[in-house]
Simulated assay, not measured.
Amino acid sequence: MISVILNVYKRNKNLERQINALINQTVQIKYSDIHIWYNKSELNQELPKSSDIKTYICSYNTKFHGRFLISLIVKTPFVAVFDDDIIPGNKWFENCLNSINSFNGILGGTGVILKAKAYRPNLKIGWNGVHSPNNEKVDLVGHTWFFRQDWAKYLWYEEPITWNNGEDIMFSYLAQKHGGISSFVPPHPEQDKELWSNVPERDYGYGTDENASFLNDSEHFRIRDEICRRYIDMGWKTLNNIK
């Protein structure tokens, strides 16, 4: 039912924890449903013990977009893509299936509502923002994505403004523009963190370690601001009707 795409760059030590979290979901995930994109990773690093897991070893650093190529070829109705520092609660996929059947949109672990004609300032909703017990409509989602497989094509309808950043912004924008598809964050209730996309107590600090993209690129947020400005000029309809 769900194909899962994991990305390995420099945090391969987190891979086993991610796989365990997937196999322990209340919605069954088989090893054969898991795809691992080794993004310019060392070829001598340990591969998963299960031979059913599908691996793709890329010698080139495709940064943020490359892993999404796998979503074009899988055969399941749904696809889930994870950043390499995200460890979901064991009811995350159950949460996503309930949400997507009620709110037909791209789902994410963190949602962003833009407040101006730029990425900043913004309001974040999800595991690292407002913990809402409801499905929340947002402008874009990231950290982890859950979507119908036939929506994977929208990310490739237009060439990115840059290949170095902004795949999350681009996916939500293009899905809205070409498919009329909105973005949502499923419930992240305080009383049940097993529903969360990422459980902070199980976060090993990878999101803020020396490999974090926003820490290694002084232009990270400036570029994200520019991507948002460009897409708004191109007709992106934001929740606050920014123009």
Results as ranks from 00 to 15, higher is better:
215 L>F: 12
51 S>F: 02
207 G>E: 09
82 F>L: 13
98 N>H: 07
243 K>Q: 14
169 I>K: 10
7 N>A: 02
50 S>L: 06
152 A>L: 01
7 N>H: 11
153 K>T: 13
146 F>Y: 12
122 N>T: 00
99 S>D: 15
8 V>R: 02
127 W>V: 02
239 L>A: 06
138 V>S: 08
156 W>I: 02
171 F>C: 08
48 P>I: 08
119 Y>T: 07
86 I>V: 15
64 F>S: 08
130 V>L: 06
214 F>C: 11
189 P>W: 00
112 V>K: 00
151 W>R: 05
139 D>K: 06
76 T>I: 07
20 N>H: 11
29 I>F: 00
37 W>V: 11
199 V>Q: 13
58 C>M: 10
166 G>A: 01
231 Y>M: 05
72 L>C: 04
90 N>G: 05
9 Y>P: 04
218 S>G: 10
235 G>M: 05
163 W>V: 07
56 Y>C: 01
118 A>E: 04
163 W>K: 10
24 N>C: 03
219 E>T: 15
67 R>G: 09
106 I>V: 12
143 H>L: 13
62 T>F: 13
228 C>K: 00
222 R>S: 13
177 K>Q: 00
218 S>R: 10
240 N>T: 02
151 W>Y: 06
28 Q>V: 13
25 Q>R: 10
166 G>N: 07
223 I>D: 07
98 N>I: 08
137 K>W: 00
97 L>D: 08
220 H>V: 07
130 V>S: 05
123 L>H: 00
168 D>F: 09
126 G>A: 13
156 W>D: 08
30 K>F: 01
128 N>W: 02
150 D>I: 00
49 K>L: 03
72 L>E: 14
69 L>F: 15
137 K>L: 03
68 F>D: 03
125 I>G: 03
209 D>C: 12
74 V>T: 13
59 S>T: 14
150 D>F: 08
73 I>L: 09
147 F>E: 07
127 W>M: 01
18 Q>I: 09
183 S>M: 03
36 I>F: 01
165 N>P: 04
160 P>R: 05
62 T>G: 15
229 R>Y: 01
91 K>D: 08
207 G>L: 09
74 V>R: 09
178 H>T: 04
102 S>V: 15
155 L>F: 10
195 L>M: 15
204 Y>S: 04
72 L>H: 13
58 C>A: 06
208 T>D: 13
91 K>W: 04
16 E>C: 04
185 V>N: 01
86 I>A: 09
80 A>R: 07
60 Y>K: 15
220 H>R: 12
147 F>Y: 14
32 S>H: 02
218 S>A: 11
142 G>A: 10
45 Q>K: 05
69 L>V: 12
242 I>P: 12
12 N>P: 08
198 N>W: 15
59 S>Q: 14
124 K>E: 05
61 N>G: 15
225 D>K: 07
114 L>C: 02
96 C>F: 13
169 I>G: 06
50 S>P: 02
8 V>Q: 07
228 C>G: 05
67 R>A: 15
191 Q>H: 11
72 L>P: 03
125 I>E: 01
235 G>Q: 02
209 D>F: 05
78 F>I: 03
19 I>L: 09
191 Q>F: 05
147 F>N: 10
81 V>Q: 08
62 T>W: 10
